[in-house]
Write a protein that binds this DNA or RNA. Structure first.
Lengths: 187, 187
DNA sequence: CACAAGAGTGAGTGATCAATCACTCTCGAC
DNA sequence: GTCGAGAGTGATTGATCACTCACTCTTGTG
């Protein structure tokens, strides 16, 4: 086989791959009801090896959440670059559209919701705050919008999370259409 | 002892009491990591008797969530009655203040967040949609505000949930102050 | 008193799961 | 070729938990 293609051991190379599996599985089941065996299975390795790569389930969730927020910031950044013009309003708008695209498959959105629910676990709460700090600071710094506009951006992001997790966009009643108005839906 | 003080059996009388214990315990731990034993303990009965009163953990959670949303609507109603005037803006504003008061102790808010995380369980998802339908329809009907204002009301309620669950209001950094600006905090 | 019906529980049971351990296998360096 | 380090796993373990069952206790009624 090719020589070790860098200074990374194969274990170090595998970590992000397993983390990606963890993102998907934790997004499906949440922290408490997702098993290490499920993540291992998704990654094609044995459960025992997951614990060789990560010290605990908690830490694995934290790594998955960090990967999630990194992808979110990356998507916002790409969206901002593609804005029709670089005014604060246009950039925030483009970021919103990019986020809508990103969460089309629900995975990254669900993981954030599950993290919120598990935030009483100190390391998870801290990882959640770190992620939100990155997203909020990036949205403000990149767009140059004022505080109020950024707060509005995040608030409607949270509304979007509610709509998707509760599948409100599949409800035809008027209260549901009211909540979903102007929000892009998955699929 | 006094005669059966109505047509209700003592089991029927106990159900709402146990449901209130379930609200508190599920709010603390979420659906998956809260045990029936914890709820039973909080209610001062045996775990076995919880299953005499409710058929399953799932159903108990649903009943707790229904109780939660009933209290929310009740609080919004009382808040609306106390509005400085009955214009849509003033009524929505008063409802927001009443909601802030209601969730001061985090319990009802956390339960909603945990319900969102457990919404993949069909009965819980349905109960969540039912609760949101009641809250949204009530907010619109009672205030008479237009769709956009009601959507804004719910979106900022969700932002409030994020701030409280992640304890963002305890973070002194600027991104956190930006998100928390103008939102009332617990305690 | 007798007894029926409901209130309430103690002691399980079977399943599940995070975490561990003792192992085997591969492969590059000498 | 042999040695050692890292990759990777199967088999367990100890704990937890939803749910069940067989049982006792109480109380109101005839």
């Amino acid at each position: 086989m090719a020589e070790r293609s860098s200074i990374l051991s194969t274990a170090e190379i595998r970590k992000p791959v397993v983390a990606a599996s963890a993102v998907r599985e934790f997004a499906r089941g949440g922290y408490h009801s997702t098993t290490i065996a499920a993540v291992a299975n998704e990654a094609g390795i044995s459960p025992a090896y997951v614990f060789k790569l990560f010290p605990s389930k908690e830490k694995l969730f934290v790594v998955a959440l960090e990967a999630c927020f990194a992808q979110v910031v990356e998507a916002l950044s790409a969206g901002a670059d593609a804005a029709v013009d670089q005014s604060p309003e246009a950039v925030l708008d483009a970021m919103g559209a990019a986020y809508s695209d990103l969460i089309r498959d629900r995975t990254l959105l669900m993981l954030q919701v599950h993290a919120q629910s598990a935030a009483e676990i100190p390391e998870i709460g801290q990882a959640l705050r770190n992620g939100l700090a990155k997203v909020t600071a990036f949205a403000q710094g990149r767009s140059g919008a004022d505080d109020e506009a950024v707060q509005h951006f995040i608030a409607y992001g949270q509304l979007c999370h509610l709509i998707v997790t509760a599948r409100i966009d599949e409800v035809p009643e008027s209260w549901a259409r009211l909540l979903s108005a102007g929000i892009r839906h998955p699929e």
